[in-house]
């Protein structure tokens, strides 16, 4: 039964076309069948780290332009000069950085010689929404 039974919350999660796909140098997206579970995990973790680093670098943070596909925004927080601190960009960056941090910790466990991306810094303090 391929008919949708109910209304979906959001549009398809698929992006782009076969002409428009992610390319991460040195990290092909087709992997061999015979990788061990640990190799596979290390590879996917590393790929995600590279992808997040690229998002942070380019500023393409993967925030949907459709408000229905985003979670509700928190109450704004302003600094003493009246500048908003928890903008969508700031929140998304901090989310990506903390996800990347978890993956980097995972990589250290899998491979103690792992070198994190040059712009990676372990979090000093957390921004709380």
């Amino acid at each position: 039964n391929l008919e949708p039974r109910r209304k979906k919350k959001r549009g398809s999660r698929w992006e782009g076309t076969e002409q428009d796909r992610a390319f991460i140098p040195g990290m092909p997206t087709t992997i061999p069948t015979n990788m061990s579970k640990d190799q596979e995990k290390a590879y996917l973790t590393q790929l995600r780290i590279e992808q997040i680093s690229r998002m942070l670098r380019t500023g393409e943070l993967g925030v949907s332009s459709n408000p229905e596909e985003r979670s509700p925004s928190p109450e704004p927080i302003y600094d003493s000069a009246g500048k908003r601190l928890n903008t969508r960009e700031v929140r998304q960056r901090s989310k990506l950085e903390s996800e990347r941090h978890q993956h980097v910790l995972e990589m250290f466990k899998l491979n103690p010689e792992y070198k994190p991306p040059p712009d990676y810094k372990p979090p000093a303090n957390k921004i709380v929404d």
Partner: peptide, 14 residues
């Protein structure tokens, strides 16, 4: 392969 799904890069294998 390499398309994005929910902002994540799709990796494939047989």
């Amino acid at each position: 392969t390499g398309r994005k799904f929910a902002h994540r890069v799709v990796v494939t294998t047989f």
